[in-house]
Design a protein around this nucleic acid. Structure first.
Lengths: 116, 116
DNA sequence: GAAGATGCGCAACCAAAGGTTGCCTGAACG
DNA sequence: CGTTCAGGCAACCTTTGGTTGCGCATCTTC
């Protein structure tokens, strides 16, 4: 029962800069490579590349407006990414619980009378 | 309110191969670079490097046994990683809900009383 | 409308990370 | 012993994230 996710989507949100970009885009409702780069520790070009990655997996989409390209989060796709995140978290959490339960059972059967 | 996580921990589980490795280690209760590589699409050396990364962030630890090095998941640290995953998922989920609620409110206020 | 400012895309280049092959050491076992 | 097999090391390649530099297009302002 392995945890299977869309590696492309996951790796898109796996980058810390891209996570912060998504955060900023969600907070502000949209932004350009330039405006984003002003609030990030990387150059505009780096931001542009990240936007390209996010665009390719459909997490954001651009709207040309004059000489600007305004990017906004695609909520549907973003929701899918969040769902995957949650499902992996849940699956691993469940697995941890199971392991802990088993470990306790073993310990109980081995030392029915623990001291201290 | 931005989503802040331990980037080291996150990027450790951000790699798809490392996620599958953790999966395998959890399922089997432990393993060596060699045994893991047999079930992964990469070479033993690549697996060894990944194990090094996971070891450095404390997600796994090795137990020398003869000429083997048996790796196992550190459950406490792994639990922390899972918690971070979940918290990011939850935060983004909440944000999505809020946006959707606002969007609905706007639409409602616009529909009964259209423009100007 | 021309001139400067501003936003963006492209190209070259650099460094780090993931991956590979090859080799060598050292424990296990006949 | 000699063989075998797991693991560590080193060299090298490719991808990816990052930078600088430049050119083009679009605003803006006189």
């Amino acid at each position: 029962m392995s945890v299977i996710v869309d590696d492309e989507l996951w790796s898109a949100v796996g980058d810390p800069i891209r996570r912060r970009m998504l955060d900023l885009l969600l907070t502000d409702g949209g932004g350009t490579a330039t405006t984003l780069s002003e609030r990030l520790p990387v150059t505009r070009q780096a931001v542009a590349k990240h936007l390209g990655v996010l665009d390719r997996v459909g997490l954001v989409h651009a709207t040309p407006s004059g000489r600007e390209r305004i990017y906004a989060v695609d909520e549907a796709q973003f929701a899918r990414a969040v769902a995957q995140l949650s499902s992996v978290g849940a699956a691993w959490d469940a697995r941890l619980r199971r392991i802990k339960r088993i470990a306790e059972a073993i310990q109980q059967s081995r030392e029915p009378r623990p001291e201290t």
